[in-house]
Nucleic acid binder design. Structure first.
Lengths: 343, 343
DNA sequence: CTGTTAGCGCATTCAA
DNA sequence: TTGAATGCGCTAACAG
């Protein structure tokens, strides 16, 4: 439309478009006098370069895609922030897309980003089945998945050691004398949910307390669903003295359900979450949970992505460790303490 | 690069690029036989159209920009979601950018988006000074600001009636017999913070209790800063029986500070927040706060933006009303109640 | 029904 | 030190 182009600037100064282009890109081969003339014209006309044209020409958009399942889940914004900080520093813009826990929308986002010719994508906690996800990722110049693993030729991966995480939780609860475990597991579409579930199953079995089927309820990763699920679990399982929750949102719901059921936390039942979202310490009681280095997850993912874009396919996979943070939902009146395990 | 182009598809089928283009865009003038041949070739070659080229040609990118000050502040993701839902439905992609409460980064985002040739931008709670913001917005084909007003020729606006909001809070507290008000105000860079501060000043004065300077502390909009600010306020102001907080994060900090100072909430001091983030009801005690229709803010902003892009510059400005939600931080042991004011 | 021409705005290549 | 030609991939506008 009426937008100022490089041509307009060139005409204004009385040079060719090439000269303007060279000035814009700080290339040599232009006299200082011309350079400042051109700069003046650029300011005066309010010229702003057309990224579409540049990208088309260069087949590089300097734009990255970032897909998260739910931006209103406080777990994800911190990951986004880590990734963005690295990207911006490297001169990339980030296209964030919110899949709203919907596989369709996740797929659409990935396709749209391919059409927009992003230079690479990061998919956080993908909900799509493996086959479909990989097909979509193959369309991209470079890709990284967070909270899932992937074949190195398809995507880099940044994951959590869920098994180590849940074992910390289990051992903490066992040390407190808890024996009757209940589990609020996440949705099957979540890789993390499946890993945590299996980790807990294995961990409890290893401690001689295999998980009975009536001690397990699956739930969507939201507060209210967590509350409903907890209520159902109490009904099914009878008296429990420890509750492992898929994530902190579910744990928040569980705390509400405990209050409604007249159960004291932690005296009657100890509750453990996963993620350590910023608000976990504001819960009543403050939530014992597995701290996940969310920002680092994002930072690592973006570093790997940039490496892959640059053709350096090192770091096929990075695994980060969650760390148990003990608060009032497992230990009454405890001053907050962080238990560090040797890494 | 090795990417499949429309030409490749055309060659494969043995037709011209135009025919492929017509099929891609569902245009008439292609026989059914050709159409299916082309479709087959598209699938087979894994062709994906190049949005950069399309946008360049059309000078329309079908991409929108959305700038928020801090994606980790739970106030914003819901706005984003409202805006995204509307945009996606209209076939637009959204470029989300996180300014991290930094004016520089806000400006950079806006400039970057202009270079990427988004069709329009929404800036939520802009931190930039008016003059600079407007200059940046003028570069865009269409713009909408949320939580600030703007001249209609520069941008549409979706705002909150902060004055009505704070008056509801003040009257609620006065009705409870509170008289010694303290105020944790937000940063001056925030338009909302300034409006809320002025509204509270005026409202308290109107109730015969003008705000003394030692009853006011300004703070950054984070939990920890809120806690520090509250501690400082208690020191400065001595005994208070009501605390008005810039937003729910600050209120969360204030609740912590009250606990540390041995003040009972609400018996000793009543605390009111602003925003009604999802976690406000999980605080201890649950937070009385002004509910802001965040999702609607986003929906309205995006609708207006799409209107403006389409050249329909109706709705210069939409003003939404916050609604007081009374919880345990002002009324002990109250069942949650929503007070609706006539709209 | 199908194809050719041309140009969106920019930058690489080559020439002057 | 500067400029002209050319094409990135796509699609209006116009032939045929």
């Amino acid at each position: 439309m009426g937008r100022v182009t490089i041509q307009d600037v060139a005409r204004e100064v009385g040079v060719s478009a090439m000269t303007v282009s060279r000035v814009l890109n700080g290339q040599p081969g232009v006299s200082e006098r011309r350079r400042s003339q051109v700069r003046a014209a650029i300011d005066e006309l309010g010229y702003r370069r057309n990224g579409l044209a540049r990208s088309l020409k260069a087949s590089r958009s300097h734009t990255l895609g970032l897909v998260v399942p739910d931006i209103t889940n406080p777990y994800f914004p911190e990951i986004v922030r880590g990734a963005e900080d690295v990207a911006l520093e490297a001169g990339y813009g980030v296209f964030l897309s919110n899949a709203v826990e919907d596989q369709q929308r996740e797929a659409t986002s990935l396709r749209l980003m391919e059409e927009r010719r992003v230079d690479g994508v990061i998919v956080v906690s993908p909900r799509l089945p493996e086959r479909q996800l990989h097909a979509l990722l193959r369309g991209h110049r470079a890709a990284v998945v967070v909270n899932r693993s992937a074949p190195p030729e398809v995507a880099g991966a940044v994951r959590l050691d869920h098994v180590s995480g849940v074992m910390q939780a289990i051992d903490h609860l066992v040390a407190l004398g808890r024996r009757r475990f209940g589990l609020l597991a996440g949705p099957d579409s979540s890789f993390a949910a499946r890993e945590r579930l299996e980790g807990i199953r294995a961990g409890l079995a290893a401690r001689g307390m295999p998980l009975a089927p009536d001690r397990l309820v699956k739930t969507a990763p939201y507060i209210d669903d967590g509350a409903d699920a907890a209520a159902r679990l109490f009904e099914m399982a009878g008296r429990l003295d420890a509750l492992l929750c898929y994530n902190d949102l579910v744990a928040a719901g569980a705390l509400q359900a405990c209050a409604s059921a007249g159960l004291r936390v932690p005296q009657d039942v100890a509750v453990v979450g996963f993620d350590d979202i910023a608000f976990a310490r504001m819960f009543t009681p403050p939530l014992t949970t597995l701290h996940v280095p969310k920002y680092d997850l994002g930072v690592n993912a973006m570093r790997i992505l940039l490496d892959r874009i640059a053709g350096r396919n090192v770091h096929a996979e990075v695994v980060l460790r969650p760390t148990l943070v003990v608060r009032g939902s497992t230990v009454a009146a405890a001053a907050p303490v962080t238990i560090r395990t040797a890494s």
